Amino acid sequence: MERRPRRRLLLHGLVGLALLLADLPALASSLAAWRITRQGALELRTSPNVSLQAFFEAGTRLRGPRVWVDLPGAPSRTRSIRGSGDVREVRIGRPTPDTTRLVLEFRPGTELNPADLRLVGTAADRWRMDLRGLSRPVLLGLGEGDIEGSATVAYSPPAPFPTSGAPLSADGLPVVPRDRFKVVIDPGHGGPDPGAVGIGGLRETDVVLDVSLQVARLLQARGVQVVMTRTSEVDVDLPPRVALANRVGADVFVSVHANALSMARPDVNGIETFYFSSSSSRRLAGSLQGQMLAVSPGSPDRGVKAGRFFVIRRTVMPSALVEMGFVTGGLDSPRLANPAHRRRLALALAAGVLQYLGGR
């Protein structure tokens, strides 16, 4: 299920929620620059595609709350930086030999609601957290390094994409001219946003990422250039997903999701695909829908429908959003939890994309 544009990485208590992309070797700190803006936002620039963990600890009567972020790679030196406003101190530490820790310690009495602290990846090397609740603004100049740097907007994972199980074969899939087409695959949700959670704790993010990674490999095997909005459990807001697709000049955009209803309604199952308005998007959606139904016997056909989801409404190329079944459905959920069925869905989606490209 798609979500509205929002910022994500909730920090609760001492529990860290990881934003995962491909890990870099821990040879040097992946923290390139940081700053706290006058408006009260923490901004980070890191090495592209790294893992982050963020934490929150409530304050006491004598000590203010703390927020810290752990990154791979050791810092060149540990240090403390005097803060300003409600920020008492910023520390760069090394809790383990291969970890950098950026700690923001706030003054006693500072009120921070952990539910409002959301760290979001705005690009493969950029992160932002709004520190809502600060009453005294931070002075200019609190930070280190060049925060602007060279921005990385597109996520460009190495080929082949990692995926579980043995690689699928593209034999039998439609053939298109090699190196002519570019496709963006958008696995919905991710990181601390699991999407829908269904029977047996089945999470939408796990299903759609597994399928999407396999679709990417299949399309690559047919000579299609593939760009993914995420390649692991990282949360990417909706506008950057759209910006990525529009920026790289994709021929096709496919957002991959799984549906949900109430856990009390396991009788509701089925596959549906959405498009926004254009006839080309309608044809793309129809191709994807037909292929998914072919590998899901008995699953109801909920149809090809016009929808106003952000990612298909704002992309400029033919776009579709697929719902591969209900994680709350008595029929669909066991299938979506089955790696063999997810492989069949990956083949179906790859076939649907190739069928559309071949008919252009």
Rank of each mutant, 00 (worst) to 15 (best):
L27Y: 03
D86E: 14
R45V: 05
E89M: 14
G64V: 10
L31I: 07
S84Y: 14
V50K: 01
T122N: 03
N49R: 13
V120I: 10
A18Y: 14
V87W: 08
T96L: 10
L24T: 11
G40S: 05
P97H: 04
L17W: 12
L44T: 12
Q53I: 10
N113M: 02
R66F: 03
I92S: 00
A54R: 06
D116A: 02
R38C: 06
A74D: 01
A115K: 01
S51W: 08
L44Y: 12
R38V: 11
V50I: 14
T37R: 09
P114S: 06
L117W: 09
G121Y: 02
P65C: 09
G64C: 09
A26H: 05
P65V: 08
D70H: 08
P97E: 07
S51D: 07
L10V: 05
R91F: 07
Q39R: 12
T96F: 08
A115I: 01
V67R: 06
A123G: 15
L104E: 12
T78E: 15
R63G: 14
P48T: 07
P48F: 09
R35C: 12
S76F: 09
V90N: 04
L24M: 04
L17Q: 12
A28P: 04
A22S: 15
S29N: 08
L52K: 14
S51N: 13
V90I: 15
V90R: 02
L44C: 11
R38S: 14
D23V: 08
P75N: 12
R63K: 14
A58M: 02
I36N: 03
D86W: 06
R101T: 00
L112N: 00
P72T: 11
T37H: 09
R61L: 15
P48L: 09
A28H: 13
R63F: 14
N113G: 03
R45N: 02
A32E: 10
I36R: 00
L102N: 06
N113F: 04
V69G: 01
R82M: 14
V67W: 06
E43C: 11
P95C: 10
A74T: 02
A26Y: 00
T110H: 05
P25Q: 13
